[in-house]
Amino acid sequence: MSANGSEPLLSVRDLHTTFPLRSALLRRVTGHVQAVAGVSFDLRRGETLGLVGESGSGKSTLARTVIGLERAASGTVTFDGRELTSASPAELRAARRDVQMIFQDPYSSLNPRRTAGQIVAEAWEIHPGVVPRSRWRDEARDLLARVGLDPSHADRYPHQFSGGQRQRLGIARALALRPKLVICDEAVSALDVSIQAQVLNLLADLQADLGLTYLFIAHDLSVVRHVSDRVAVMYAGRVVELAEQEEIFRRPTHPYTQALLSAVPVPRPWSQPPRERILLTGDVPSPADPPSGCRFRTRCWKARDECAEVEPALEPRLGLHPSACHFAELPAAHR
């Protein structure tokens, strides 16, 4: 397939992922949970798209659907010109080589019985032809060095590494097949802050050196701002706002984005102009029984009748970026 430089690397259109709800006794399907409910976005080559949202927003399910770990109920995922939701197993296999994932908990995603070198080389066993067997040892050591691990530790087991080192090992494993897209699912969330900063710098260096494209999923907005070119904000299975990083953080127009930003703890609040704190009440609605119309309306201080009747589309508003709110408006400081 053509790798036209201007076409997006990943294109997701109206993607839905649903999980059946079953009764405890007869396992009969009693309903459906819409974990991802009509999500569309493009990922440009070489960029980092940050995906933020709270637990239950569907951000991880979205990533798992993109990579094929969950089946899409409807919609399309086009990667590098190939439509994946209708692809043959062989095509899917090839695409999976190009898309790799880094998980939150490196410890549970690394086989404890394999050495660091074997963990990195595992992918070459599954996808023959990427690296010839005679080169495995050297290539594995190169990869370990590339992510800041001591190549002489290739014979060590995961438990012999610290948490930060294990995450580096997870990154080395993800890079083994020379992917085009790396999905980082809360990849730095479990790390201590000093180690987290080291890993963020590493991810930036790897992107610059290898031309990687990142889909970066995190709940920490400071981290997302730091790494992302563009940011998508998810709420209850839908993208509610999508824009360049600076737009999202300086000119958010969706009330949920504004509330989320106002809740982010900053280390030295006194050194900044006073922020308007929007304290949301209540919790994210159950995805099994989402509110009619706008899914955020049950927690929104702007909600009116219209919000319960008409679901707001994600479209440019106020002459700015796409926002899914009937009453999109800039934060008070900008009005």
Binding site: V193, S222, R225, L261, V264, P267
Partner: peptide, 11 residues
């Protein structure tokens, strides 16, 4: 000081 420098800014 190192911890403070490790935290990405929001502004």
């Amino acid at each position: 000081r190192g911890l403070m420098a490790s935290i990405p800014d929001l502004d």
